[in-house]
Computed example of a mutant assay.
Amino acid sequence: MSVQWFPGHMHATKKAILERIKEIDVVIEMLDARLPGSSANPMLAQLTAGKPTLKVLNKQDLADPARTALWLAHYNAQPDTRAIGLHAGTVAPARALIAACHELAPHRGGMVKPMRVLIGGIPNVGKSTLINTLVGKRATKTGDEAGITKQEQRIALADDFYLYDTPGMLWPKIVVPESGYHLAASGAVGRNAYDEEEVALELLKALKGPYGAQLEARYKWGWTAEAVARCKEDELLTAVGRKRGALLPGGRLNAQKAAEILLTDFRTGALGPITLETPEEHTRWLQAALQHEADLAAERKARQAARRGGSRAAPGTA
């Protein structure tokens, strides 16, 4: 299955960013700290190329601290880029992003040259919650469904600091399969774009090795972490369902219900602090996906050339 979700309002967001970016000093990209590579939008990077960027790893309270450190180091090593971790509901750390923006654009500030910052990210990454925390009131709508914010909003965080909030945006084609599954597992993708059971199986594939002990702690199967790691994903999903009573008449597994239970436990943090990918893993997945796309393009080009050659070689008609 290929997870893809790009509703119509996301086309409007792309256009709005192109119009706004000319006057922007710093771009803040909100990332999900549980999937920092998969939640980084390549289309946003393309639209805002050349602008200093602050990567905010949000929901870090739900993420694995050791892996968060790896991702912060990864992004901080990139040119014109800073990265910080945040929990959007905490006031003091949230204000750190204002100082970080001034570090990235030290020539901006004051009433003559106010700081102009564009903030973007994937749907359901916690952007609206962060903004509401910053301004101390309900400035934007929030919710646990993807696609709550529908249009750009300008918010004054200070007399000389303007924040332009854009709707959550994915990109038209997610080429990295693992990223598609991770985005779906996090709730960044609309529910009609994926199959819960398939996403739950892929989530278990990512969890069973590094986080087997946390799965056991949550579901209390009586297994060691090593035993969890050796299990097949469908066996683990069955075990989740049986432990949580997700059964059909006759004791058969209700796989759909079991998948929903697992996904909810991941999204709410009930499984403990988890990060689904490391920088090394995501780089490897991306390279493999780009090579696959290049191979497909070469195959299409070869077929088109063969058809053109066959057409030229075909005998004419009288």
Rank of each mutant, 00 (worst) to 15 (best):
M1D: 01
M1A: 04
S2R: 15
S2G: 02
G8P: 13
H11C: 02
T13V: 14
K14W: 06
I17R: 12
I21F: 01
R34G: 12
S38W: 10
P42R: 02
M43L: 15
L44Q: 08
A45F: 00
T48S: 13
P52A: 03
A63S: 06
D64V: 04
A66S: 15
A66M: 08
N76R: 15
R82G: 02
A83E: 08
I84Q: 09
T90V: 04
R95D: 02
A99D: 13
A105Y: 05
P114Q: 07
P114A: 06
M115W: 05
V125L: 06
L130D: 04
T133A: 03
T142K: 12
G147D: 13
I155S: 10
D159K: 14
M169F: 01
L170V: 13
P172E: 10
S179H: 11
S179T: 11
G190P: 01
R191P: 09
D195P: 00
E198P: 00
A217E: 11
W221G: 12
W221C: 12
W223R: 15
T224P: 02
A225G: 14
L236K: 10
L237Q: 01
T238D: 15
A239H: 01
R242G: 01
R244V: 14
L247E: 04
L247M: 07
L248Y: 10
G250R: 03
L253R: 04
A255F: 14
K257Y: 02
L263T: 11
L276A: 09
P279K: 05
H292G: 11
E293W: 00
A294W: 00
D295I: 08
E299D: 07
Q304K: 10
S311T: 01
R312M: 09
